[in-house]
Design a protein around this nucleic acid. Structure first.
Lengths: 363, 363
DNA sequence: GACTGTTACTATAGCGCTCAAGTACCGGCA
DNA sequence: TGCCGGTACTTGAGCGCTATAGTAACAGTC
């Protein structure tokens, strides 16, 4: 009876948390046996295991994650830091769905997602350092990949499970998951050309993000391949910029007959401008977006868009990250294997054709 | 030298994590002294404290949260469960900003936010149970308050720090933070009446949420007080419903001259319908929304809206939750004090007048 | 009938920290 | 000189779990 203990009611305090020792006492075994039983490890008879499980359920006991973490077990949490104005999150359809996809997979593995919004990239890196330093997370998801991103070398140095969302390229030796923007671009351009458009504009968002440059290149290349004229228009960030860019396009002598916007938000702002200028969509101008959302769907006309299936994206990312975490646990050599798991996974985008491009008589 | 230990390089493994013992060794004191020093407790001289802090910084050491949690310290995490289709998150401007406000305050106190998306209310309650049972969080934020919400009694029974977002009312003995929807409604109605509108419609969202009913009542009351006619139109959820509701209003014999929508998303959808029907905003129809967002701001015409300042809302909520957690730690009697902290805090909304109502010649 | 091998456990230590109790040292004071 | 009280630590135990080594009981083997 070495594991029995005096039960100190300690006044009117909260009831003492039930621990592994309580289960062990009740089952007439030691804590170690309970540990073996609940973790599905050999060393206890089936009968004893069943008895222990029953008691645990009855007493409503669950092992303390803190105590487990102390013995080196995974903490069952992954982190994601966002270094952007928080208000932006609310506007971006992509984000919510992505998180949902992440959660869906993480939840089934009993992992939780920890999020933090910070002011700067430095603060983001510092957060990674602390999270791993304190063992608050088993791995992290890094979003908003930029060109020559300082977070990449920082995470490489930490040598901890980290997954980059974005690419291909610019993620160093880190594993990455990305939607193939080149494929997405091809889908959009091909669609427009297929409808008869010969002069196609692309209204591009923040140049800072890696995918913007990638789309630019793919766009011009594909237009050229198909013998169409690609017009590149930089719009900076958000709706404001997109509206201005659209006005700019309309003012041109040889205006395009189709515009591809970088996001749903931009496409809506652009459409608004077209409407105000009496230009009918899709009859006089075809409109499409790289990003789908409820807004794109319910807008009239509904906007043709790339269904990146952000939810699916999130699912793939979570699955991949869990694989990485798992691999990391198996072998204690960080560097070599880190590189080995640095493999990249791409998700194929799909084109969702809607009214904003359908039946256009191109000109 | 009782705390010294054999350093086992163990092959090519990851370097051993630096612990409190390393700091103690280096400083020539025991771990207990280090603990006192870093926690700002008396019992160490200023000189020793400074030395310890220096070494800790130099060795890049931070106390392990797991070990601390094991001794009863707060785990420095708060949780939020969302039981709604994840895709919705992306569309709702409110949500992102709210989370941002939460984070802003939590981060300064070194708390992190844990989120989980679940399928059902039962799963949500189960999550609370497990989070608290495993001591994964110190407190939770409960959102999307409904009428006779089963989560309220569930959380009351758990007797752990929990803050309800929404009210007033329907949150039982739990503390709550809410935006005063009655005030918001008054602001909107007064504004419309002030512009000369005498027949005002309200296009309402999901009836399930508590605030919907509250707005309904306040809307009708205020209209009556001011001698205007309030028209209530149920729209169900989202843009689709709002568009249909708007069409319904237009079809009426005695159509209103102003419409107040429950959300920005709904206002945009409604505006679209008005535009298609050749009705000019705000000349022929004034439009306003209960929810502000970048979309409402950049839409043309820009939509008059209630700036609930979701960010501020989040800040207040986080501050309040931390207070509750703190209070909970001080006294070990859960029930009585729970009720004592059950106090409620309201946030006053503001009206942001934009083009969609400005200069309307009502009638 | 002594040996080997398995199974089903127990005993003990340790993860990294905190806390309560103990001790060494020092100045002050009658 | 002896005692008191405070400061600055140390000692030891404990939080709840897991891992490793150890042991008792039993079956099988030549």
């Amino acid at each position: 009876m070495s594991t029995s203990r005096v039960s100190t009611p300690r006044g009117a305090g909260r009831p003492r948390r039930v621990t592994i020792a309580d289960i062990a006492d009740r089952a007439g075994v030691t804590a170690a046996a309970v540990s073996l039983a609940v973790n599905g490890r050999p060393g206890v008879s089936d009968a004893t295991r069943a008895r222990i499980m029953d008691i645990a359920r009855e007493l409503d006991w669950e092992p303390s994650p803190a105590a487990r973490a102390l013995t080196g077990a995974p903490v069952l949490a992954v982190g994601m830091v966002l270094a952007r104005p928080a208000e932006v999150l609310g506007n971006e359809a992509f984000f919510g769905a992505f998180v949902a996809g992440l959660q869906e997979v993480l939840s089934t593995e009993d992992y939780s997602l920890q999020m933090k919004i910070v002011e700067s990239t430095e603060a983001e890196i510092e957060t990674y350092r602390r999270w791993f330093g304190q063992r608050r997370v088993d791995g992290v998801v890094m979003v908003d990949l930029r060109q020559d991103d300082p977070r990449v070398p920082a995470l490489e140095k930490l040598g901890q499970p980290a997954l980059v969302i974005g690419g291909p390229g610019h993620h160093g030796s880190l594993p990455a998951v990305y939607v193939d923007d080149a494929v997405a671009t091809t889908l959009l351009v091909d669609h427009m050309v297929g409808l008869g458009h010969r002069r196609i504009a692309r209204v591009a968002g923040t140049a800072e993000f890696f995918h913007t440059a990638q789309r630019d290149r793919a766009f011009l290349d594909r237009c050229e391949e198909l013998g169409a004229t690609g017009v590149l228009q930089d719009a900076g960030y958000g709706a404001q910029g997109a509206a201005a860019a659209t006005e700019g396009l309309l003012a041109e002598e040889d205006a395009p007959s189709a515009i591809i916007f970088d996001s749903d938000e931009m496409a809506l702002a652009g459409s608004q401008v077209l409407l105000e200028n009496g230009i009918r969509i899709p009859q006089q101008m075809a409109v499409a977006s790289y990003e789908d959302s409820a807004l794109a769907r319910t807008h009239r006309p509904a906007i043709t868009a790339i269904g990146r299936s952000a939810v699916q994206y999130g699912r793939v990312a979570a699955t991949r990250l869990l694989e990485i975490i798992d691999a990391d646990r198996r072998r204690p050599l960080p560097d070599a294997a880190q590189a080995a798991t640095g493999e990249v996974r791409a998700i194929d985008p799909q084109l969702i054709v809607r009214a904003s491009t359908a039946g256009a008589d191109a000109g």
